[in-house]
Structure formats: structure tokens, C-alpha cells
Design a protein around this nucleic acid. Structure first.
Lengths: 345, 345
DNA sequence: CTGAAAGCGCTAACAC
DNA sequence: GTGTTAGCGCTTTCAG
């Protein structure tokens, strides 16, 4: 905490606090000479204004709250990175809190952010959040919230999301185009919209191509895990030997599946093709390398923050706020766990 | 921003601001009746004190700054997690900034944290930081700094680190114990202490066991990468075919090495044993699974924060501050990229 | 037991 | 061109 403050500088220079403040803030009604004196002293003292006094006075904190379901998670790390870097470029700092995918924790953390008087909040809904009163309450209370990743249609506000349906559709289509005839899907827990949309895209691609949509080969991974993938490998090897392609809703489970199938003697992609989702680092180091869907967490974090800052600005300037929903494109990264286009039957 | 403040509550209840404040803060000299009235109203209004007014008044922000070299990084994610969670449990929030392994950025970010009047700072030194004036300046200015992970001995303050030397020693020893005779090391850039210590531990184990320490098989990975590992695999396959064990300073490079060697027909661990460092997630999914050294980033973040909070408390209470250095134990996680103990020749 | 008032550091409207 | 003052919301000393 540097000792320098306006009062001290005013006293040393024999000026009033007000004049010093004006000199520092570029007001026109200060003589060039005084301004220079003030600036010189400020420089020498490494003066920087007390941020709390500023916040109290200006009723804005230049701080935004970021609520993530999980901190230790590749995708969310990228979100954090995008948000923190973009915030910094705009003079904001970020307070990060974790909801741990729990509704109760989410409520508590939002309250904590409010207590800290953040200017706005970025959040991805916890998986088991089913009621949105706590969120609409905050928005009505005047603190803007922008959703990223896991959103809800029930609340009108700024949103940034991946078009999961389109991405899943493209992935499934790629399996079909490379010759797969019996394509399974691994989906996540029913609640989050992402899961639903990925399933939808899968189903759409299947049906459009004249294949049959078969519920018995839509497997569920409950906890998003590597282990779940291995379990599903076991089920496929034992009960569904006609499956020749799998589109998994997340890389980790896809990787578990890949390892599990290899352990059982399957050749990937000759016997079964696999596509994951997220383009996590690990997809580059599996053998074979995993074809996957790339989602840019960085870009998502950045865009979400930009929307939020725009809203904060607009509210301050009493400009009408128009909510937007931005789609971050997700594209297929073709590697070696799927057959080559054209090389097939 | 909730509208409720002390003035408003005082007016509604026909009390003075001071009395309301006292009632809320558990002062004894307030009648039970008044206290109850105040508490009820506060509850109803969901009153929570304005944090900026508090900070300004109390000269403390209950905010700490966390400077990490890289946000998107498994180890640092765990650090962030440990810090954020522990901070929250103690009523603090965390502002995270990234130094990008650059001295200049580090300086800038530290200044930013000071401008925000954080109560203390946690930092890991950027790789190319060679001068510590900016840091001692801050400490002398009254803002405590605790180092974690990459530290410097030149500054006396609280520190939390992994005993890299001991961990590297144990890892190398394990290669020796499982029958390796010609053991290479992959080290990082010379600067960070961690690199130096890991090299030291490796050398100590080698020499103690009567093997020769040979500089030509200490390879350098400049950018910590998967690719570097593959390049070194090439060199080993071409020029150092007698090598039968490698201790790498980081998992990513170890994984690159593993993949590169496999591509060249090596069998792991029969032909060459490999040990990595960090226990990143990816070590569980390589084939074979990588033996590695586990470093708990979570624990490190937690301990670092605890030390920092203790110092903040002590300074506040004018208790003499005694600096500590905590070592987080790092243990060998034995998997399948090394031979079994006793099963060897 | 309650109230009045000063002050944390800053900005901005107003006066001179 | 400069100074004075009020006030952002809070705590705490001092009076009563």
C-alpha cells in the first residue's frame, strides 16, 4: 500500500486536494505549470489512486465476477484465460469462484460476488441448477449477468455458446461419410443443454442419412469420466459387436472408450471409428490420435466478457441494452481415430 | 448492487447510523430489542455491507493477488484451485493475473495488483526474472508476498516449494533399482531453480550408485514441449542406443519421448524405462501408463495462501513475522513405463 | 443504551 | 485557475 495520496501531495505542493485531483485527471482548468508539478510529484511518489475510494465514489468497481463449474478443467482454464486477459486489456480485474456443479454452491457464490460489488458476472450454469430465481433476482437488482457455455433459455440476457447441435451433426456426418453404418453415441447426464443438443445433432445426422436412430446404442456417461468410456467399451464388445462408429460427447470418455476397445483387441479406426468432443490436449497423444470437435474456450471467454462490458457501459450511459447470443464456431479436427474420406468402401 | 445501506436502515427504524452499525457488528452496548429490530430489517433487505466502504475504512481489502506464469496449465490450475478454495474459506477472494513467464509482464502485473490494494500477493517467479528489486520494493512497501513453486533464495519471505532435488533423486534411484544401467536425463532451461534441482537430484543418484554422470546424455528441452520429447527420441534412437532409462523433468516431454520411441519400435519399459514429472492427467492415458512424480498443486496453493494469511494477520496485530519455507512432499507414482522392482535381471 | 461526528481517499459541483 | 465542500458507506471514539 503506497503511502502517497492526494492529501499528501496537496500538502507538499501547497495546493488543494481538488486541484491535484483535476491535474491528474486531465481537467482543462488547471494551469500547465501546476499540472506539470503535480504530474512530476505523482511520478516520483509512484502515486496511484486508491481503488476502493474510487469504487466507493464512482459506484463502479472495474471488477467482474467469473463463476466456473470447475477450475481444474482444460476447457474452463481456457475460459478463465480468455476472460482474464480480455478484462485486463480493458482495465478490469476478475474474481474467480467455483460452483462445483452444484446449485446450492452456485447460489452462495453469486451472493459472494454481489457482496463484493462486482460490476457484472459471467457464469456457466451448474448441471443441477433447475430454478433461476436467484439469477433473475440479481439481474433485476441491477447487476448484469452474461451466460457462457451452459445457458438457459428461460432468462433473457447476453449469452455465448457453442452450437453443439451443429457440431455434433457435423461429427456424426463425418462418421457416416467415412463409411460407418452403425453409429453409437455417448451422451452426458440429461440436464445440461449441451448434452441435449449434442444428442439432437447426432440424431439429426443419423436420420437424415437414412440410418436408424436406435436408443439402445445411445450410452450414458454419468460422470464425464475416462472410466465411463472403458465401461462402455466393455458393453460394446460384449453386446453390440455391430457398432462401427462412436460419437462421444466428450474427449475424456472417448479416450476411455478408445483405450478400452484397444485392450479388447479392436483396431481403431478400422473396426470402430471414434470422435470425441472438446479438443483437449490429450486427444493429440492417444494412439491413434483422436478426431474431435474443437471448442475455443479462450474465444468464448473473450466474447462473453466483451458482451458483459458492453452491457455495463450501456447501462452506465443509459443506452438501451440489447441482449445478444453469440455462437462460437466449433469445427471438426480430423485425426486418426476415424477413417480417411474416400478411402472407404 | 443492493440498495440497502446503513443510512437507509437507520432512517426506516428511526435510529442513528452508528447504532445500526453496532447492532450488526455484535457490540454489547445495544439493547436486545433494538438489535433484533435491526437484524430483522437487515435480513428482510438482504443487507450486506458495501465492501469498498469497508476496505476504505478498515484499510484492508480481504483480497489477495495471485500471479501465475500460465493459466492454462494443469499444475497451475491446481494451484489456482487450492488458493481460491482456501481463500474463500477464510473470507478472502482472489484476483488472478498471468505473467506469461516474462519479467516485464511480471512487473506490470504486480503493479496492477498493488493498484488494486490487495492485502497480499502469491507469486511464482517468471522464468526470465533475474532481478528482484521490484519484489523487495513491494515487500518493503508493506504488502507481503509469498513465493510458491519457482522461488528465489535472494529474497527473505514466505516460500512454498516442492523438494525437486529429493523427488528427482528418488525417481532416478527407482530407475537404477529396476535395473537400468545407462540413464539419461531431460532437463529444462537453465534458469528456474526447479530445473537445477531436478538435475542435481538426478546426478546425485547416478553418482551415488557408481554409475557415471555423463553430460552428453543430459538433454535439454527448451520449451517444455511434447515436440521436444519426440526430437530427443530421435537423437536417442540415432546416437545413444545404449540408453535404457530416462528421467524427464516434465510429463509432457516424457510423453513426447515415449511416443517418439514407440514410433521407432522401442518397447517401453523393456528397452527403455521412462519417468516423467508432475503426474498430469495425461500420464494415466499413455500406453504404457507413465511412471511419474506427483506434485500436489492444490496443496501447494493452499499452504502458500495459509502462510500469506498468517503474515497478514501478524502484521495487523503487530506480531513479529517469522518467515517459513514449507516443502510439499512429492512422491513417485509407479506405473507401467518402468520395470517392476525385483523382476529385473 | 443511543447519537453525533470525524475520517478512510477520492471526485465534481460550486464559489471565488 | 484554484479552493472549498459535500458525499460515496462504513466504523469508532466520544458525549450525553
Amino acid at each position: 500500500m503506497s503511502k502517497a495520496n492526494l492529501t499528501f501531495m496537496a500538502e507538499t505542493l501547497g495546493l488543494s486536494v481538488g486541484t491535484v485531483s483535476k491535474a491528474l485527471n486531465g481537467y482543462k482548468d488547471v494551469s500547465e505549470k501546476t499540472r506539470q508539478k503535480v504530474l512530476d510529484l505523482a511520478e516520483k511518489l509512484k502515486y496511484s489512486p486508491n481503488s476502493y475510494a474510487l469504487s466507493l465514489r464512482n459506484q463502479e468497481s472495474k471488477t467482474i465476477g467469473l463463476l466456473v463449474p470447475e477450475i481444474v478443467h482444460h476447457f474452463f482454464s481456457n475460459i478463465i484465460h480468455g476472460v482474464v486477459q480480455t478484462a485486463e486489456a480493458h482495465g478490469y480485474v476478475v474474481i474467480i469462484l467455483e460452483s462445483d456443479e452444484s446449485y446450492d454452491v452456485e447460489k452462495k457464490q453469486l451472493q459472494l460476488l454481489l457482496d463484493r460489488n462486482v460490476d457484472g458476472i459471467l457464469m456457466s450454469l451448474a448441471d443441477n441448477t433447475v430454478n433461476y430465481k436467484h439469477i433473475s433476482g440479481i439481474i433485476n437488482g441491477g447487476t448484469p449477468i452474461t451466460f457462457y457455455d451452459k445457458i438457459t433459455k428461460s432468462i433473457e440476457t447476453n449469452k455465448v455458446l457453442i452450437n453443439d447441435e451443429k457440431a455434433a451433426y457435423n461429427a456424426t456426418k463425418h462418421l457416416i461419410n467415412t463409411g460407418c453404418k452403425r453409429i453409437a453415441h455417448i451422451r452426458g447426464a440429461l440436464k445440461p443443454q449441451t448434452t441435449i443438443d449434442r444428442l439432437k445433432g447426432y440424431r439429426k445426422a443419423i436420420e437424415e442419412s437414412g440410418l436408424v436412430y436406435d436408443k439402445t446404442i445411445v450410452f450414458e456417461s454419468e460422470n464425464f469420466s475416462f472410466e465411463d468410456g472403458k465401461k462402455i467399451a466393455k458393453r460394446i464388445a460384449e453386446d453390440f459387436q455391430d457398432i462401427d462408429g462412436v460419437f462421444a460427447f466428450t474427449d475424456l470418455t472417448a479416450t476411455g472408450l478408445l483405450v478400452g476397445l484397444k485392450d479388447r483387441g479392436y483396431k481403431i479406426p478400422e473396426d470402430i471409428s471414434i470422435i470425441g468432443f472438446s479438443n483437449w490436449f490429450l486427444t493429440k497423444i492417444t494412439t491413434p490420435k483422436l478426431t474431435t470437435v474443437n471448442q475455443s474456450g479462450y474465444e468464448m471467454g473473450k466474447q462473453a466478457l466483451m458482451l458483459l462490458l458492453k452491457e455495463i457501459e450501456d447501462r452506465k450511459n443509459k443506452i438501451e441494452v440489447i441482449y445478444k447470443t453469440i455462437e462460437i464456431p466449433a469445427d471438426l479436427v480430423i485425426r486418426d481415430s476415424t477413417k480417411k474420406l474416400g478411402s472407404s468402401q
